[in-house]
């Protein structure tokens, strides 16, 4: 592991999630480190989104611990927190596999809703806002500035006043990331951000994510199928299959891990393994 020097921002320990008799995630442990992009990959149904839902509080894990650390040393046990508190105080933001924008509200409004808690305090829980207090008006201006910053960053500033539902698919994906960033998170969780994007948009996404990591100093955890995104930008990859971790490491080591190759191709015979390893290494390295 090349980059084990930095501190973990998120550590998942022995996470297990069962739905009735079905075990979606079983005894999973991994870390996402500060200032890095960590990718969670695996075949369909491997339990990636379930892990996300546990981290962001939409599911309560059956067992295990999810620890989030802030730079100042504050720590949060996410498995004990309500979903909205995770976003509000632990500062974990997320996007969704099937985009969940407020489609009837404009792009700008979407980003303003993301700054709800900050503005709510500034409006002294609506009372100051009703009477138009100066403090609230200044905060609202600042919020619009932050929204503008992100709209520019995701190249949607010209569409700020258009309804989110009117935007093309690729723009909606970027807007959702901008909206998540407007909550000023410590950890950004992206559920298949490149799904449905064309190669050009996919490249642009890579650049955006890198810049979020470096310029905005936010750690990223992402689920992705698009290997060009995963291999191109991840510092660290965790591979899941049938709810269990089968590999964990930097892109190069994961790429050559026989367990990963088996999971993706479903080969069991030893001889075919080697043939497949070459094929997959090529596929993973060269796709798009």
């Amino acid at each position: 592991m090349a980059s084990s020097g930095t501190t973990p921002v998120l550590s998942v320990e022995h996470l297990t999630m069962r739905f009735g008799g079905l075990t979606a995630v079983s005894d999973l442990s991994f870390e996402a480190r500060k200032g890095q992009i960590t990718a969670l990959i695996g075949p369909n149904g491997a339990g990636k989104t379930t892990v996300f839902n546990c981290i962001t509080g939409f599911y309560k894990p059956t067992e295990g611990r999810i620890l989030l650390s802030h730079p100042g040393g504050r720590e949060f046990l996410l498995e004990q927190m309500d979903d909205f508190r995770i976003a509000q105080t632990a500062r974990v933001a997320r996007t969704f596999q099937n985009i969940r924008l407020f489609s009837g509200m404009t792009a700008l409004e979407n980003l303003m809703v993301a700054q709800h808690n900050k503005l709510m305090t500034a409006s002294t829980y609506t009372i100051g806002g009703i009477f138009g207090s100066g403090h609230f008006r200044r905060s609202e201006k600042a919020a619009i500035e932050l929204a503008k910053y992100w709209l520019e960053k995701v190249r949607l500033i010209d569409r700020a006043d258009d309804p989110a539902g009117d935007l093309p698919y690729g723009d909606q994906r970027r807007l959702e990331i901008a909206r998540a960033m407007c909550t000023e998170p410590q950890l950004l969780c992206l559920d298949e951000p490149a799904a449905g994007l064309n190669p050009r948009e996919s490249d642009e996404l890579n650049r955006l994510l890198r810049s979020i990591r470096s310029e905005n100093d936010v750690s990223i955890l992402l689920i992705e199928h698009d290997m060009s995104v995963v291999m191109g930008i991840s510092d660290h990859i965790v591979v899941l299959d049938y709810g269990q971790k089968i590999s964990d490491g930097d892109p190069a080591s994961v790429k050559s891990d026989p367990a990963v190759i088996r999971a993706y191709l479903g080969v069991e015979d030893e001889e075919e393994d080697e043939i497949a390893a070459v094929a997959v290494a090529e596929a993973l390295g060269e796709r798009k």
Binding site: I86, L101, V113, Q115, H116
Partner: peptide, 30 residues
């Protein structure tokens, strides 16, 4: 009052709630 509330965070949260409750929670809205 309603018109004013719509332009305040609380009113935007109402409308956001109407649009997508899960997304609201993911943004830290109670």
């Amino acid at each position: 009052v309603t018109n004013r509330l719509r332009r305040l965070p609380i009113g935007r949260a109402w409308e956001a709630l109407r649009e997508d409750e899960i997304a609201c929670r993911s943004l830290g809205i109670n």
